[in-house]
């Protein structure tokens, strides 16, 4: 693994390059596009596992982080969907330059999927793997809002010595000593989202995937989160051949009890490696 800071030196992006062993190179790259926010934190380990497996299979792999995400510069306060799409283009070029490859495929998880798809007309990936893809940005944000509400109401997370009935009574009399669990309206699962960014994410829809006409498309999802399967009909209607893989790896993204559990990639590692090699799908 080779860590890289790349792009604009004033606001660099972070990436980790996984190289294949000498003599085993396929001469192809894979750009891994992560989720944002806490979903990114949860998926770091899974991304590392997938990247390592792809490198063992002969690919040059760059898993990078969007502006305002992970070790890249900035915060979500300065991020925008447009900027993230540019980040994917910059990262694809970095992968080509660093690894000396011309052919690149892309893999996007959750919001990383539509962002990768939006960059695809420029990057021209050979294949695009859409893993637990966000298809409707508005619904994705609604899911985050429900998650936020459930987390704030969770007595185990916000355990406090007073029972809730006592707390609410004390809160009426002495608000300064009652437990406070207030979140700003633009705060979602541990991160602040500007109104403009929320609007941009809400505007992400199935149209984001329109530019994939020249790529192989592989949709990966799990029985517990089959939402991305709804992506298949519109893509097929647009004339694309779509392969679908159902894995056991489930982030249970909407489950408040899972919000700090790492995504374990389970069989997704082998399934994604096979899919990118053009072997095996359902």
């Amino acid at each position: 693994m080779i860590p890289l800071f790349f792009g604009d030196s004033k606001s660099p992006l972070f990436g980790m390059l996984h190289e294949p062993r000498a003599g085993q190179e396929l001469g192809q790259g894979v750009l891994m596009c992560p989720p944002i926010g806490q979903e990114h934190v949860r998926s770091h380990w899974a991304f590392r596992q997938v990247a390592a497996a792809l490198a063992r299979a002969g690919y040059h792999v760059l898993r990078f982080e969007w502006y305002g995400v992970g070790d890249s510069a900035g915060t979500l306060d300065d991020a925008s969907v447009e900027r993230w799409v540019d980040d994917a283009k910059t990262a694809a070029q970095e992968l080509k330059d660093a690894a000396g490859v011309r052919k690149v495929s892309m893999l996007g998880l959750r919001l990383g999927a539509p962002l990768a798809a939006l960059a695809a007309p420029s990057v021209k990936p050979q294949a695009l793997v859409l893993w637990d893809a966000v298809v409707d940005g508005g619904r994705y944000l609604a899911e985050l809002r429900r998650l936020q509400a459930a987390l704030i109401a969770d007595e185990r997370r916000f355990w406090f010595a007073w029972p809730s009935s006592v707390r609410s009574t004390v809160g009426r009399v002495r608000a300064d000593v009652a437990q406070e669990r207030h979140a700003a309206s633009d705060e979602l699962v541990g991160f602040h989202f500007r109104a403009e960014l929320l609007d941009q994410i809400a505007a992400v829809g199935p149209d984001a995937y329109r530019g994939l006409k020249r790529s192989r498309v592989v949709v990966v999802d799990s029985p517990e989160a089959p939402g991305a399967a709804e992506l298949v009909p519109p893509l097929e209607a647009a004339g694309l051949t779509v392969e679908r893989i159902v894995t056991e790896a489930s982030g249970r993204w909407a489950d408040p009890r899972q919000v700090e559990e790492l995504l374990l990639p389970a069989d997704a590692v082998a399934a994604i490696t096979r899919a990118l090699s053009g072997q095996g799908s359902t």
């Binding site: 990114h40 934190v41 380990w45 992970g70 070790d71 991160f191 790492l262």
Partner: peptide, 14 residues
């Protein structure tokens, strides 16, 4: 715990 260097909710970066 098991969280990578960014920390829960990217707290360590901040």
């Amino acid at each position: 715990g098991l969280v990578h260097r960014a920390g829960p909710f990217r707290m360590h970066v901040e």
